[in-house]
Structures are given as C-alpha cells and as structure tokens.
Design a protein around this nucleic acid. Structure first.
Lengths: 229, 229
DNA sequence: CGGACGGTTGAGTCTCGTCAATAAGCGTGG
DNA sequence: CCACGCTTATTGACGAGACTCAACCGTCCG
C-alpha cells in the first residue's frame, strides 16, 4: 500500500492548483488520508463533520435514508471530486451519509486548513465559492427534476446529461458508471420503474441497451419524447 | 417615494455588517435600487445574472416552471434575505425565475462589488461561504422532502419547521406567510392535496386551522403522526 | 350585482411503488 | 466442470397516493 504524495496531489486539484507552494505546505498538516473498503461508512447522517474530503481513488456515494429504512442516493462522487465542503463551514451535523462504493482512499482536509487558505488567498475563496455555487445549481436542478419531471423525463434527462463530450456524434453512447439500482435511486426511481422506462425508450427505437452501455439512436427525438408522451 | 440610505441599509445586513465603513462605501457604486410592483418579474429562468439581490421590503418568490406551464415555488424570500448569490459567481443563466409577490424594493449588488469585497476581507468571504452552505443545506433538505417524504409528512414538516421561537410553548401557532396555494406549491403539492392533509390533521385533533393561522394542539403527537399513518 | 380569487370537497384517473416470481451473470468451492 | 448462492435485472399483477377535473362556497372589491 503505497503512500500518497499529499502536496503533489493537492496541487493537481482544481480547487488548490493556484495556491503557492507555501500555501500548499501549510495545508498539509491539516490533511490526512482516509482509506476504506467497499461499503464502509465515512460519516453517518447526523454526525458532526469538521473537514472536507477529496476523493483520490474509489467512488463514494452520498445518500439519505428515511425512517422506513429505504435509502436514496443523492450523489455519486468520482475520483478527483470533493464533498462535504458545505457542512464544514456550518459546523452542523451532516444532512447525508457518505459511504465507499468500492475500496478507495480520500484526503480529509480539516476546516482549520481551509479557513486559513481563505484568509491567505482571495482567489482560493473565489474558487470555493464557485464550487459551492455549482453544487447549489446541481441541487436546484435536482429539485426541478424531482418536482416537475415525470420518471420518463428524468431518465431521458439523465441520458442527455451524460452524453460524451463531442455532442455532434451520430449515435453517442452512455455508459452507466455504476449499477442500475444506484442510478435508479439517484433519479428517485425504483429499479423496476427505471427498467420499464428504459424499455419504453427501447420500444420507441430511441435507445439500445446492452448491460450498462446505452446507445442513443436518435438524440433529437429523445429530447422531444418526454414532452408529449 | 423615499430614497433609501444604501450604506446604512447594507451595514445592517448580516452579510455586510462587519465590513469597515470604507468597504461599505466601496460597495455603494455597485449597488442600486430595484423597485417593482406585485407580480413583476425580476429575472426569468435562463436570463444572465451578474449580481445578487437583497430584499429591502416586499416579498419575492423563486420558482421553476415546467414545459407544461405549471409552476413550482422553490423559495419565498422575506425582507432582509438575499438571493441569486450563486448565479452571480458562475455567470451562468439563472436556473429559476424571480418575481415580486407584492410591491417591493430590492438592492442589487453587482458581482464586481462582491468580488472586490472578498478580496479585501476574508471574513466577508467566510460569511458568504457560510451563507451559501446554509442554502445548500436547505436544498438538501428539500430534496429529502420531495424524494422520501409523503405529502402528509411534508405538511407536518413545514408546520414544525415554522414554529415560533419559544419551542416549549404549550399550543404554538403558525401563521402562513402567504396564501395556501403558494405554500402548497412550495411543498410540491396541489392546493387540493394540501387542504386534504390539513383536514386530516384537524380530524386527528392535532391542529386547528383558522384562515392562515394554524394552532398546533399537540406537537409531540404531530411529530409522531407522519411516521406510521 | 357580478366577477375574481382563495379555498374546500368529491369523483375518477393515472403514475408509480410494492410484492412476487423469474432469469441471467458471476465468483466460490466441491 | 457443474452446483450453489448471491447479486443484478427484468417482468407482471396489483394497489395506493396524489393529481386532475369539476362543482361549490365565502369574501373581497369594483
């Protein structure tokens, strides 16, 4: 199990990459590795949380769970992304739980280090603000989805949002990053409904599905399909 | 129509109150009044937006609208609160629309002024970050409500969240800040469903309703009611 | 008075979740 | 190699929760 070069990892994060070497060094004492196995819980809903996390490798899910025990995935965090910044600033209990989806490793940067970096570098503060703003927009989008879109529209929306870069590709393909149960939960659907919606799109000749690979046969028709069906 | 003393208003906002007089003065040239009548739209979903807004008086709603034309209230902004900070940092189109609920007045602070204040005062940046974090938590809470709570639970949750300060009051009263249609939309319910849920709580002797004033007869039972019914 | 608005109530409908059965994929171990 | 258990995915039958549509009522206001 190799040790990570923390300064060089931090330097390559979008959030930190414009900090001076001294500022990075100042961050290091507030940073430590967190390793975990698949399924391991990083923090529970309600836990206090005094730092933010950067994913080095492995994926992490953020989820809510209801009193009835069922669970809803809020976000799937990929390597290179971060989470829990907002909790850190408030010193409040976490509103969600975080769990490793596979064996992985995180860096935890304690609030003190971040606050210090804010004081030393206004540009850092701006990036942090931009990052939070982006997350906020994502949540607004989620609220929009859950409140005014049908399940079919949510599935279509997901597919369109996860198109590969070159938008003008003729028959673009989307690969689900995790299993369908998780995607369904992320879209606030049961696995059954998700399966049925995909099937509906298949029957309309709009997509083709092979395991986790979904080919969009006709992007324009797909965009239009949700609106009147 | 009296003119507002902008510096003194800014100084009394939580966000700005710890800025020095010089910093406040620096903000003033980037600030201007926005007055509007009831129903007037401040910005539409999709509009560019290069500043944040402070509500001086009058209330404002933030809402989404679907392709089918129906509209969903995301937030009701009271005097003293602010909105659109997050859009400002991203320079993206607004994800929601904003509209006066009654005749009112806002202050718009342009992005440039805010960015400048961030550069001059790290504590300001921190407050801004805390403000955004708070909003983020609110949205997480909303997602939770919309995705795993039933309509009855959402109504109960709303009532409990809007209790007056003294928590130990025997029969606390909640006054709806706006009409029931808007509250229903905020809770992602139709007015009909909202009415029915209230009625259900009345029949269970948990609340009493008189117009917009709702008396919580038994807070503890109310908390428990959503879970098994 | 007439109309607009806000709110309530009833009847019918539909979307989506629940429950159950089945199948396919996969690693393990005999 | 196959049997097995486990997870993942699909499909069908059914039911419940919430929306839609419509009628109705009270109040406010011109």
């Amino acid at each position: 199990m190799s040790n990570l070069d923390i300064p060089s990892f931090l330097r390559h994060q979008p959030l930190f990459q414009q900090l001076s070497p001294e500022q990075i060094s100042a961050l290091v004492p507030h940073t430590h590795e967190v390793r975990g196995l698949k399924g391991q819980v990083i923090f529970q809903k309600g836990d206090p949380c005094d730092g933010m996390f950067l994913v080095v490798f492995g994926r992490v899910k953020l989820a809510l769970s209801s009193a009835q025990g069922n669970e809803k995935v809020m976000e799937i965090i990929q390597p290179g992304q971060s989470f829990a910044e907002a909790v850190m600033f408030l010193g409040r209990p976490c509103p969600v739980m975080a769990q490793f989806l596979e064996d992985g490793m995180l860096l935890k940067v304690e609030a003190e280090g971040i606050l210090q970096a804010i004081d030393n570098d206004a540009a850092f503060a701006r990036r942090l603000l931009a990052g939070l703003s982006l997350r906020l927009h994502g949540l607004v989008r989620d609220v929009e989805r859950y409140s005014i879109e049908s399940s079919l529209q949510r599935v279509i929306g997901y597919l369109l949002q996860h198109l590969p870069e070159e938008g003008c590709d003729l028959m673009p393909q989307v690969s689900l990053p995790v299993n369908k149960n998780l995607i369904a939960s992320r879209l606030n659907l049961t696995p059954e409904t998700f399966s049925r919606m995909l099937h509906q799109l298949i029957e309309a000749d709009l997509i083709m599905v092979e395991g986790r690979d979904i080919t969009l046969v006709n992007v324009d028709k797909l965009k239009a399909f949700g609106n009147r069906e």
